[in-house]
């Protein structure tokens, strides 16, 4: 294509995009006018007047919408961060067993990965909630000397009480993400040339020592991009909390939209907060990546 022709198409594309954007904004203005609300954020200071089952910080219905949203954020971050840690631990273990020499564990973990990856997260969450936590017997289902305790009241860990909703979401997100993380781990380990295994074996270094001292350090850089994208997915997937009644940022947004009709403002808040969170995750993973590179690999 000639240079001029190329430029022509580029300009055409820009105009098409602007036109599309114009239509969207026009629609928005018309809709806002019809509801008679006007675009503003003043309503944020008004009392929310709904109650929240779970709030890490003090909250009552007389608090503002803004505070309710903030509580929603705390709830979201709580479940995202704890799932992220748990999913990484489970995923890493499953990934290790998947590539390991023991064919029994290798087959079991392959099955785990396949089943978890091939079923929708929503269904898994419902399963964990209704089958796993809500229908548990009133008394303890699993109890380890008052330290760890699973019942229909959720999970009790070191006297910390986790609600059934939070527990189901934590387990659901962690198990789901762990299967993908296991695949990331497996891919990273398999990206290390076979010659590295042979080299440490030929030196009489044991499988375990060689794995942690030779293979893993070389696989680490290969883990980062895959892990980053799984963490981003996990954060986004956490909005399915609404399906099991956990008051995350999305569920609270939904309630507020129903009460106030402020759909546009609410979605702007929602999109911006997830954008910021995910940029933050990407940034942190970038820093980890750099520090791994610096350590000489």
């Amino acid at each position: 294509m000639s240079k001029n022709k190329k430029k022509f198409f580029q300009i055409l594309l820009v105009f098409a995009f602007l036109g599309f954007l114009g239509i969207l904004i026009n629609n928005l203005i018309i809709n806002l006018a019809r509801t008679g609300l006007g675009f503003n954020f003043n309503w944020l200071t008004k009392p929310a007047s709904f109650s929240l089952a779970e709030h890490p910080l003090p909250y009552s219905p007389s608090d503002s919408y803004a505070w309710a949203l903030f509580i929603g954020w705390m709830n979201s971050l709580k479940v995202i961060i704890s799932s992220l840690v748990l999913a990484t631990c489970i995923g890493t273990l499953i990934g290790f067993l998947r590539v390991g020499k023991n064919s029994f564990f290798s087959i079991i973990t392959a099955g785990y990965i396949t089943v978890i990856r091939q079923t929708p997260l929503l269904i898994q969450l419902m399963c964990w909630y209704f089958v796993g936590f809500l229908n548990m017997r009133n008394n303890s289902f699993l109890s380890i000397s008052n330290i760890f305790n699973i019942s229909n009241k959720g999970i009790e860990l070191f006297g910390l009480n986790l609600s059934p909703e939070f527990s189901a979401l934590l387990f659901g997100l962690s198990i789901f993400s762990s299967a993908f993380i296991a695949e990331v781990i497996r891919g990273g380990i398999q990206s290390v040339p076979l010659g590295q295994w042979e080299a440490f074996r030929s030196l009489g270094i044991s499988e375990k020592q060689g794995f942690f001292k030779i293979i893993i350090p070389q696989a680490l850089p290969a883990f980062i991009p895959g892990l980053t994208s799984q963490y981003l997915n996990l954060a986004k997937n956490s909005t399915l909390a609404i399906a099991i009644g956990y008051s995350d940022i999305y569920a609270i947004n939904d309630t507020i939209i129903n009460q106030t009709g402020r759909a546009v403002e609410c979605f702007i808040i929602l999109l911006c907060s997830f954008l910021i969170l995910n940029l933050l995750i990407t940034k942190v993973m970038g820093i980890i990546d750099k520090s791994i590179m610096k350590s000489g690999i």
């Binding site: 010659g195 590295q196 042979e198 440490f200 009489g204 270094i205 030779i214 070389q218």
Partner: peptide, 25 residues
């Protein structure tokens, strides 16, 4: 054993490559 493709450990220094087995094994 010495391999065709050397198979040195790329994340370790030359000296660390050599001392790894004596120290670990």
């Amino acid at each position: 054993m010495v391999f065709q493709q050397f198979n040195l450990f790329p994340h370790l220094s030359i000296l660390e490559n050599i001392t790894l087995a004596p120290i670990q094994v």
